[in-house]
Amino acid sequence: MEILLIRLVEAVLMPPGLMILMMLLGTLLVGRLFITGRLLIIGGFVLLVAASLPVVSNNLLALLEQTAPTTPAQLNQRQAQAIVILGGGRYVDAPEYNGEDTVSKHTLERLRYGARLHRQSGLPILVTGGNPYGHASAEGELMRRVLENEFRVPVKWVESASANTWENARYSRQQLKRDGITRIALVTHAWHMPRSVLVFEQHDLDVIPAPTAYSTRARPLLLHFVPNAGALDDTRKALHEILGRLWYAMRY
């Protein structure tokens, strides 16, 4: 129930939900409170356009994507003991996979990089992702199948009880502790890395960030000011991470 409530609040506070709500409320009020209603409509429109601009989304993501990629030499130098790959969602009822669930594109990007690090370092892998919506299989199990069946990479630990990044860290720590693992290479998206490192370190793990799939990119100057759906999604991701850190500070 908590996860559903959080998703509902996100839908209201994140683009484009907040802007749509502002414009809808303004439309309802404009007959009685003309100035207030008009300001809400204009404000919602301006915020929606701003959130859709690459110049806005790129700068927000740049605040998060400040961790440089890692190398096998750095993993060896810091004596990493394991690779932890965070789940990033699932592809539900995939028709090309006989209607079964499989990993989402975000999760697949993380798995691909985790498999690369494993081949370079030989370190064992833990995958972490739960099943908060009650699907047939936990996300961690889907990740294990893809790594072992498609990438031909073994998975030593599967964490499948978590519902968010905080619980990823909590339950992963419990499994790793039993094998004396305290120093990990953490694989997730570059924009998700700051929050992930924070919570894993709070669970007494020494974290070597191993970010992948950087979102900030160069483009012609003019296109920085042309709204598009991709930039809107990037703005949403950045705000999700920023608000997520505030929520974790209050919740945990």
Rank of each mutant, 00 (worst) to 15 (best):
E159R: 04
G180D: 10
L246V: 13
L75W: 05
L86M: 14
A163I: 15
T36D: 05
A213S: 15
W157M: 02
G134Q: 11
M1E: 13
K177T: 11
V49G: 09
S137R: 14
E109S: 12
R152M: 12
W191S: 04
M250D: 12
S57T: 08
G37K: 00
N59G: 10
T188R: 00
P72I: 05
R110N: 08
T188P: 02
F45D: 00
P72F: 10
E109Y: 12
V187Y: 02
I3P: 06
P95K: 08
A136C: 04
G88P: 01
T67M: 13
E139I: 03
W247A: 15
S52M: 03
T70L: 08
T188W: 01
L29G: 05
G114D: 06
N168H: 09
S121I: 06
A115G: 11
K105N: 13
R217H: 15
T107D: 02
R145V: 10
K156I: 06
A51Y: 00
V199Y: 02
I41D: 01
R38Q: 11
M143D: 01
R178D: 07
P16G: 08
E141D: 13
L111T: 01
T67H: 14
L232W: 06
L8I: 15
E201F: 03
T67L: 15
E141L: 13
G44D: 03
P211G: 07
A80S: 09
T182L: 02
P154M: 07
G87S: 11
A238F: 02
L176R: 00
M250K: 15
M250S: 14
H135S: 13
L205C: 02
Q202Y: 04
L39S: 10
Y171K: 03
A249Q: 15
P15F: 08
N98F: 15
T182Y: 04
A11E: 06
L28I: 10
R217A: 14
L40M: 11
L147N: 01
A231D: 09
A82R: 06
A51W: 00
L8C: 08
E65W: 09
V146E: 03
A218N: 13
I35A: 12
A94P: 08
V103C: 01
S196D: 03
L123A: 01
P72L: 07
I242K: 05
D234T: 03
R251C: 06
E241R: 05
T36L: 13
A185P: 03
V197L: 02
A185E: 04
L63Q: 14
L63K: 15
T235M: 07
N164L: 06
I3M: 12
R152C: 11
L232D: 01
